[in-house]
Every structure is written in C-alpha cells, then in structure tokens.
C-alpha cells in the first residue's frame, strides 16, 4: 500500500482538494470518486477519445493520465460546460439541433474535442473539423451530422462577431 497523495486543482470552475492513490487514473477519480459519469470510458487505452476532458483548455484523454497530474491545473469535464456560457453552450445546442447525437456515449468526448478545436481555430474548415475529431470514435457513425453541428457553431460565432 502506497500512501495517498493530496492534490488540488480547479474542477469545473471550483477549487477542490482530494487525496488519491498515486497510481489512480484520472478517469477513475472523476467517475468513481467525484461522480462525474459524463466522462465515458470505452477503450481504456487512448484509442477512442470517449474519456476526453480539457486540461488547461487543451483536450486530453483521462484514461491515460494519472490523477496526480491534475495538481495545479484547470480541469473541465462535460458537466462543467453547463455552467459556462458562450462557445460551449452553442456547441451543445448545435449537437442537439443538428442531430449529432445517436447513442450519445461518444458525445461528451466529441464535444470536448470540438471545444478544444474552436479555442485554437474559431473558423475551421470542414476538413479541419474532420481532423480535429478524428481521435474520437463514434460507432453510430454520426460524423456527418457532427461536422454539420460544428460548422453551424463556427458560422454562428463569426456572425455574432461581425454584428
């Protein structure tokens, strides 16, 4: 038994401190210890993107990170988007309206990758969107509507800036 480690980080806009085992994965910490089950596990080895979260604004795979790596960082999960305004809400709305959700298991990860993309590139082309979400597998095959949804968001964003 190895002693637990105390870590502190910002989770969905709230500062928290937790004690955790040094070998605990981020996804287990989030889902089991903190109840954030919107973060999904589908492969557990970095192949599918379902467990994507934002770490300091960049998309990361929570199945391949250790909890201790979160120390001092800002973490955003799908649950944290609900309290934010702006881009994230637009992305969520567009996914619903444009039919980008089927079974919904890949959806949280897909949305996190989308937000990461829009943070760095607010006006991506359809091909750039394809590339940005290519690490997120959607077995229902909703890609076309996911692309439509992200395109709609980017159009809305550029329109609102032009106003």
């Amino acid at each position: 038994m190895i002693a637990k480690v105390l870590i502190s980080f910002e989770l969905n806009s709230k500062k928290i401190e937790v004690e955790t085992e040094p070998d605990r994965r981020v996804i287990d910490l989030l889902r089991e210890d903190l109840g954030l089950t919107g973060v999904k596990e589908s492969c557990g080895r970095g192949d599918c993107g379902s467990c994507s979260i934002l770490v300091d604004g960049f998309v990361r795979l929570s199945c391949l990170m250790l909890a201790v790596q979160l120390h001092g960082r800002k973490i955003l999960t799908i649950e944290g988007l609900n309290e934010l305004e702006g881009v994230s809400i637009s992305v969520q709305d567009a996914f619903v309206e444009l039919g980008a959700v089927q079974c919904g298991f890949c959806t949280p990860g897909m949305i996190m990758s989308t937000i990461d993309l829009l943070n760095s590139n607010p006006k991506p082309s359809r091909n750039e969107i394809r590339e940005a979400i290519s690490g997120n597998i959607c077995r229902c095959g909703a890609y076309q509507k996911i692309l439509d949804a992200v395109e709609t968001v980017t159009e809305e964003l550029s329109e609102s800036k032009n106003v």
């Binding site: 889902r31 919107g38 649950e79 709305d93 309206e97 039919g99 919904g104 959806t107």
Partner: peptide, 30 residues
C-alpha cells in the same frame, strides 16, 4: 430550442440528446 415539432414528418430533436450533451444521461455503466 429549434426543431421541437411533434408533427409526423418533421424534425423533432431527440429529447435524450439534451441529456447526452450535458453528461446527465445515465447509462447502465454510470
């Protein structure tokens, strides 16, 4: 929200999608 018509032949956005984009939808695994 747009697309909330209940008419047959129209687009009604999935009510479950609202829960799935917010992480609230519970699958058995959750």
């Amino acid at each position: 929200m747009k697309f909330n018509s209940i008419n047959i032949g129209s687009i009604l956005c999935r009510p479950d999608a609202l829960l799935k984009v917010s992480g609230e939808a519970k699958f058995a695994v959750d």
